[in-house]
Design a binder for these strands. Structure first.
Length: 211
DNA sequence: CAATCGATTGGCT
DNA sequence: GCCAATCGATTGC
Protein backbone atom coordinates (compact mmCIF):
# COMPACT_ATOMS: atom_id res chain seq x y z
CA UNK A 1 0.00 0.00 0.00
CA UNK A 2 2.83 2.42 0.80
CA UNK A 3 4.21 1.80 -2.67
CA UNK A 4 0.82 2.66 -4.11
CA UNK A 5 0.60 5.89 -2.12
CA UNK A 6 4.09 6.77 -3.27
CA UNK A 7 3.07 6.09 -6.88
CA UNK A 8 0.32 8.69 -6.52
CA UNK A 9 2.76 11.19 -5.10
CA UNK A 10 5.42 10.85 -7.77
CA UNK A 11 3.98 9.78 -11.13
CA UNK A 12 2.05 11.62 -13.84
CA UNK A 13 -1.74 11.47 -13.82
CA UNK A 14 -1.65 9.59 -17.14
CA UNK A 15 0.59 6.91 -15.59
CA UNK A 16 -1.58 6.70 -12.48
CA UNK A 17 -4.70 6.18 -14.62
CA UNK A 18 -2.99 3.21 -16.31
CA UNK A 19 -1.67 1.93 -12.99
CA UNK A 20 -5.25 1.88 -11.67
CA UNK A 21 -6.36 -0.58 -14.38
CA UNK A 22 -6.64 -3.97 -12.66
CA UNK A 23 -6.71 -2.35 -9.21
CA UNK A 24 -9.15 -3.96 -6.75
CA UNK A 25 -11.72 -1.40 -5.62
CA UNK A 26 -13.82 -2.40 -2.61
CA UNK A 27 -16.63 -0.71 -0.70
CA UNK A 28 -17.42 -1.85 2.83
CA UNK A 29 -21.16 -1.41 3.29
CA UNK A 30 -23.67 -2.41 5.96
CA UNK A 31 -24.67 -5.18 3.54
CA UNK A 32 -21.11 -6.48 3.22
CA UNK A 33 -18.20 -5.95 0.86
CA UNK A 34 -18.93 -4.94 -2.73
CA UNK A 35 -15.87 -4.99 -4.97
CA UNK A 36 -14.38 -5.35 -8.44
CA UNK A 37 -11.42 -4.64 -10.71
CA UNK A 38 -11.06 -1.25 -12.38
CA UNK A 39 -11.09 -1.77 -16.18
CA UNK A 40 -11.72 1.70 -17.66
CA UNK A 41 -10.34 5.06 -16.43
CA UNK A 42 -9.77 8.60 -17.72
CA UNK A 43 -7.12 11.18 -16.79
CA UNK A 44 -8.14 14.82 -16.27
CA UNK A 45 -5.23 17.22 -16.39
CA UNK A 46 -6.56 20.44 -14.86
CA UNK A 47 -5.68 23.33 -14.89
CA UNK A 48 -4.53 23.01 -18.53
CA UNK A 49 -7.22 20.54 -19.57
CA UNK A 50 -10.26 22.34 -21.00
CA UNK A 51 -12.37 19.25 -20.30
CA UNK A 52 -11.51 19.22 -16.60
CA UNK A 53 -13.76 20.86 -14.02
CA UNK A 54 -10.62 22.43 -12.57
CA UNK A 55 -9.60 24.05 -15.89
CA UNK A 56 -7.94 27.40 -15.28
CA UNK A 57 -7.72 26.59 -11.55
CA UNK A 58 -11.43 27.16 -11.25
CA UNK A 59 -12.37 26.58 -7.63
CA UNK A 60 -16.01 26.40 -6.59
CA UNK A 61 -17.58 24.66 -3.57
CA UNK A 62 -18.03 21.31 -5.32
CA UNK A 63 -14.36 21.37 -6.48
CA UNK A 64 -12.93 21.70 -2.96
CA UNK A 65 -11.78 18.07 -2.82
CA UNK A 66 -9.86 18.39 -6.11
CA UNK A 67 -7.41 20.70 -4.36
CA UNK A 68 -6.67 18.25 -1.56
CA UNK A 69 -3.91 15.65 -1.25
CA UNK A 70 -3.48 12.65 -3.57
CA UNK A 71 -5.98 9.85 -2.96
CA UNK A 72 -8.82 12.24 -2.04
CA UNK A 73 -12.19 11.07 -3.36
CA UNK A 74 -13.91 13.58 -5.65
CA UNK A 75 -17.58 12.91 -6.41
CA UNK A 76 -19.88 15.02 -8.53
CA UNK A 77 -23.38 14.61 -9.91
CA UNK A 78 -24.18 14.43 -13.59
CA UNK A 79 -27.83 14.22 -14.66
CA UNK A 80 -28.87 12.42 -11.44
CA UNK A 81 -25.81 10.16 -11.46
CA UNK A 82 -22.91 10.32 -9.01
CA UNK A 83 -19.48 9.99 -10.68
CA UNK A 84 -16.32 8.71 -8.93
CA UNK A 85 -12.89 10.33 -9.25
CA UNK A 86 -9.71 10.43 -7.20
CA UNK A 87 -7.09 13.16 -6.85
CA UNK A 88 -3.67 12.14 -8.22
CA UNK A 89 -1.27 15.01 -7.58
CA UNK A 90 0.02 17.00 -4.65
CA UNK A 91 -2.32 19.26 -2.68
CA UNK A 92 -3.19 22.36 -4.71
CA UNK A 93 -2.61 20.68 -8.10
CA UNK A 94 -6.13 19.70 -9.29
CA UNK A 95 -5.64 16.64 -11.48
CA UNK A 96 -7.50 13.38 -11.16
CA UNK A 97 -8.68 10.10 -12.57
CA UNK A 98 -12.31 9.24 -13.29
CA UNK A 99 -13.32 5.59 -12.91
CA UNK A 100 -15.48 4.59 -15.88
CA UNK A 101 -16.06 0.86 -15.30
CA UNK A 102 -15.27 -2.14 -13.10
CA UNK A 103 -15.45 -5.92 -13.47
CA UNK A 104 -17.58 -7.06 -10.47
CA UNK A 105 -16.00 -9.67 -8.19
CA UNK A 106 -17.45 -9.62 -4.68
CA UNK A 107 -21.11 -9.08 -3.71
CA UNK A 108 -22.45 -9.40 -7.23
CA UNK A 109 -25.97 -10.29 -6.05
CA UNK A 110 -26.12 -7.09 -3.96
CA UNK A 111 -24.90 -5.08 -6.93
CA UNK A 112 -27.70 -6.54 -9.04
CA UNK A 113 -30.19 -5.35 -6.44
CA UNK A 114 -28.57 -1.89 -6.36
CA UNK A 115 -28.84 -1.79 -10.15
CA UNK A 116 -32.51 -2.67 -10.04
CA UNK A 117 -32.15 -6.19 -11.36
CA UNK A 118 -29.77 -5.56 -14.22
CA UNK A 119 -27.11 -8.22 -14.76
CA UNK A 120 -23.86 -8.91 -16.58
CA UNK A 121 -21.99 -6.02 -18.17
CA UNK A 122 -24.96 -3.71 -17.54
CA UNK A 123 -24.07 -3.91 -13.86
CA UNK A 124 -21.02 -1.65 -13.99
CA UNK A 125 -19.99 -0.69 -17.55
CA UNK A 126 -20.36 3.06 -17.04
CA UNK A 127 -19.26 5.68 -14.46
CA UNK A 128 -22.74 6.23 -13.04
CA UNK A 129 -23.52 2.52 -13.15
CA UNK A 130 -20.54 1.36 -11.08
CA UNK A 131 -21.21 3.99 -8.44
CA UNK A 132 -24.79 2.72 -8.08
CA UNK A 133 -23.68 -0.93 -8.14
CA UNK A 134 -21.16 -0.39 -5.34
CA UNK A 135 -23.61 1.67 -3.29
CA UNK A 136 -21.33 4.71 -3.19
CA UNK A 137 -22.84 7.86 -1.62
CA UNK A 138 -21.69 11.46 -1.42
CA UNK A 139 -20.73 10.94 2.22
CA UNK A 140 -17.44 9.64 0.78
CA UNK A 141 -16.71 13.05 -0.80
CA UNK A 142 -13.34 14.30 0.45
CA UNK A 143 -12.34 11.04 2.13
CA UNK A 144 -9.29 8.99 1.08
CA UNK A 145 -9.28 6.13 -1.41
CA UNK A 146 -6.42 4.64 0.67
CA UNK A 147 -8.24 4.22 3.98
CA UNK A 148 -11.98 4.93 3.94
CA UNK A 149 -14.85 2.41 3.58
CA UNK A 150 -14.24 2.83 -0.16
CA UNK A 151 -10.64 1.87 -0.83
CA UNK A 152 -8.22 0.31 -3.27
CA UNK A 153 -6.50 -2.97 -2.32
CA UNK A 154 -3.18 -3.38 -4.21
CA UNK A 155 -2.66 -6.90 -2.81
CA UNK A 156 -5.70 -8.16 -4.74
CA UNK A 157 -5.03 -6.48 -8.05
CA UNK A 158 -4.79 -8.11 -11.48
CA UNK A 159 -2.47 -7.15 -14.31
CA UNK A 160 -3.87 -6.23 -17.75
CA UNK A 161 -2.42 -8.12 -20.70
CA UNK A 162 -2.72 -4.99 -22.82
CA UNK A 163 -3.78 -1.39 -22.17
CA UNK A 164 -5.37 0.64 -24.99
CA UNK A 165 -5.49 4.47 -24.97
CA UNK A 166 -8.53 6.20 -26.49
CA UNK A 167 -10.12 9.67 -26.61
CA UNK A 168 -12.27 10.42 -23.57
CA UNK A 169 -16.05 10.05 -23.70
CA UNK A 170 -18.61 12.83 -23.56
CA UNK A 171 -16.44 15.94 -23.96
CA UNK A 172 -17.09 17.46 -27.41
CA UNK A 173 -15.85 20.92 -28.45
CA UNK A 174 -12.81 21.03 -26.17
CA UNK A 175 -10.18 21.56 -28.87
CA UNK A 176 -7.26 19.14 -28.76
CA UNK A 177 -8.52 17.88 -25.39
CA UNK A 178 -11.47 16.20 -27.11
CA UNK A 179 -9.16 13.94 -29.11
CA UNK A 180 -6.17 13.36 -26.82
CA UNK A 181 -6.00 9.67 -25.80
CA UNK A 182 -6.41 10.14 -22.04
CA UNK A 183 -8.84 7.25 -21.60
CA UNK A 184 -7.27 3.90 -20.79
CA UNK A 185 -8.98 0.50 -20.90
CA UNK A 186 -8.09 -3.17 -20.32
CA UNK A 187 -8.20 -4.50 -23.90
CA UNK A 188 -10.77 -7.29 -24.34
CA UNK A 189 -12.58 -6.83 -21.02
CA UNK A 190 -16.39 -7.12 -21.32
CA UNK A 191 -17.14 -4.39 -18.76
CA UNK A 192 -15.53 -1.51 -20.67
CA UNK A 193 -18.00 1.29 -21.54
CA UNK A 194 -19.45 0.80 -25.02
CA UNK A 195 -17.40 -2.36 -25.54
CA UNK A 196 -18.25 -4.30 -28.70
CA UNK A 197 -19.09 -7.98 -28.26
CA UNK A 198 -16.66 -8.88 -31.03
CA UNK A 199 -13.77 -7.30 -29.14
CA UNK A 200 -14.31 -9.24 -25.93
CA UNK A 201 -11.66 -11.83 -25.00
CA UNK A 202 -13.96 -14.47 -23.51
CA UNK A 203 -11.08 -16.60 -22.28
CA UNK A 204 -9.01 -14.13 -20.23
CA UNK A 205 -11.20 -10.98 -20.07
CA UNK A 206 -7.94 -9.17 -20.91
CA UNK A 207 -5.92 -10.20 -17.83
CA UNK A 208 -2.46 -11.75 -17.73
CA UNK A 209 -2.53 -15.41 -16.71
CA UNK A 210 -1.89 -16.09 -13.02
CA UNK A 211 1.86 -15.97 -12.39
C1' DC B 1 -25.46 -3.09 -33.29
C1' DA B 2 -25.02 2.27 -34.05
C1' DA B 3 -27.10 6.60 -33.75
C1' DT B 4 -30.33 9.59 -31.70
C1' DC B 5 -32.88 11.70 -28.17
C1' DG B 6 -35.42 12.74 -23.90
C1' DA B 7 -35.18 12.69 -18.94
C1' DT B 8 -33.97 15.22 -14.95
C1' DT B 9 -30.96 17.36 -11.01
C1' DG B 10 -27.48 20.25 -9.07
C1' DG B 11 -24.00 23.62 -9.72
C1' DC B 12 -22.75 27.80 -11.42
C1' DT B 13 -23.26 32.44 -13.92
C1' DG C 1 -31.64 30.18 -16.79
C1' DC C 2 -28.23 27.24 -18.86
C1' DC C 3 -25.48 23.43 -19.16
C1' DA C 4 -23.43 18.91 -18.10
C1' DA C 5 -16.91 13.91 -17.46
C1' DT C 6 -24.72 9.99 -18.18
C1' DC C 7 -28.25 6.51 -18.80
C1' DG C 8 -31.61 3.95 -21.08
C1' DA C 9 -35.22 3.57 -24.43
C1' DT C 10 -36.16 3.82 -29.14
C1' DT C 11 -35.39 3.94 -33.95
C1' DG C 12 -33.54 2.42 -38.03
C1' DC C 13 -30.23 -0.13 -40.85
Amino acid sequence: MNETINFFNTQSTEDIAQFLLGMYLEHETTEGILAGYIVDAEAYLGPEDEAAHSFGLRNTPRLKAMYEKPGTIYLYTMHTHLILNMVTQEKGKPQGVMIRAIEPVEGIEKMEVNRNGRKGSELSNGPGKLVTALGITKELYGQSIFNSTLRIVPEKRKVPKKIVALPRIGIPNKGIWTELPLRYVVAGNPYISKQKRSEIDQKTFGWKEEN
